[in-house]
Amino acid sequence: MRRLLSDTLVVTERNLIRLPRAPELLLAFTLQPIMFVLLFRYVFGGAIRVPGGSYAEYLIPGIIVQNIAFGGFVTALGLNEDMQKGIIDRFRSLPMSRAAVLAGRTSADIVTNGLSMTILIVTGLIIGFSFQTAVLHVLLGLVLALTFGYAFSWVFAFLGLLVKSPEAANSVGFLAVFPLTFISSAFVPGQSLPTPLRQFSDVNPFTIIVNELRWLWTGQPSPDQLWQAFAWVAFILLVFSPLAVRRYRRAAGR
């Protein structure tokens, strides 16, 4: 167990070292979220009617959830690259904890997700977002967002090990996550959607997570319950982490 922790730390560190050296990745984590906030707030914002509060208050929790769900794509890219380049073989020939390779990868995502979430919140505060709840609720919201991001890292880990190339991982991830976030309450209220899409949006886990985050940070009433949000996080984690581990064993054992 101590071995797992220390090895996970080493692998996490390895995955983070590359960040400042890969400008395109750093841009993805910093400037891109800012761009999205500004586009939504000032291009679509005027045309979208939201219940209570301003669009900036409505938007920030939604865009944070979308962004954090995407954060895991680095895990998909990284794992796929490591498989192709033989680094996984190097790891497997070392007397290290096997789980540390995946755990280190997904743990690094927590750090990068934390980074982009901070940038998003700061941008939000500048354009008119504000926390309107008790500190405890704000913190609980941060925990919800980060654990949701962590669970999604395992979805991407599975994906990255499944597909043949980093490019494929990227496009499959995009195709899966984009519709899920857009057909949810992340950017527009569900009531504005055509009926079939609204029905989908109502049961979409993204809607539930976003609604709860909105409630925790701005006090907007939510039709769902907080436990449902955490239940989804747990569900995603419990389904995809064993899948990823199994896939890792099989893919590496060739």
Partner: peptide
């Protein structure tokens, strides 16, 4: 099988730490 994004020293240090 070395990590392209790490330096030579970082690669060897990482392997050493994974050896314990």
């Amino acid at each position: 099988a070395v990590d392209e994004n790490l330096t030579g020293l970082e690669n060897l240090t990482m392997v050493g730490r994974l050896y314990g």
